[in-house]
Amino acid sequence: MLNALIISNNIVGLTDYYVSNDLVTYTIAHVSGHFNPDLTPYDVLVVPNGSDHIAMLRIKDKVRAFLDEGKAVICSDGWFTSWVPGNQWVMDNTKRTMDTRYFLKTDAYKLLADVDIDELIYSHGMTGWWACGYIDAAPGADVVVEDTWQRPIVVLDEVSTAGILFLTASGPLADVTHAGEKEVALVKLYRNFMRMLVSRNELISR
């Protein structure tokens, strides 16, 4: 069982997508003008689509300390500020979405097990719906998924800190099936990472 803290920007519908279950217990941290959450009780920090990256920049040092305790951060959003250690998301619109495809590159933990990557590529036959821009990944981090132009789209980073970063180039991830939604690729990818964290934490505690 993991304890996850979700950073909420108080935008419509967000908390409906994260319902506590037998794998994860969720706590919500609502951003405010003096945002300074206590991260210590948690195993993983979840920064979902639509997050406040000004607020995250202001707690950058706290996030770094959290990671250096061996804990995990998921960011499935476009972090335009520099709060994520070692990695930077960059918006880009120079490539045509109709040419966008994704390819599995390095997946040591089988995060894409049972994930149909075509679901991330196509929606109603249209491509380029899932991620935006790309990640300038830390040297040595695993690029799990790259796009048509070999740009990192999903990154797993165990080298920039003592913890683990799981990052998408603003490709949404969620735990929506417990809210009654279908278990689509972005749910499976998210849950595979959470299961990997559980296994990792069990190994550490032995």
Binding site: G50, D52, I54, A55
Partner: peptide, 8 residues
Amino acid sequence: NGVWSHYA
């Protein structure tokens, strides 16, 4: 409110 699309 710190959302990337607004910023972009």
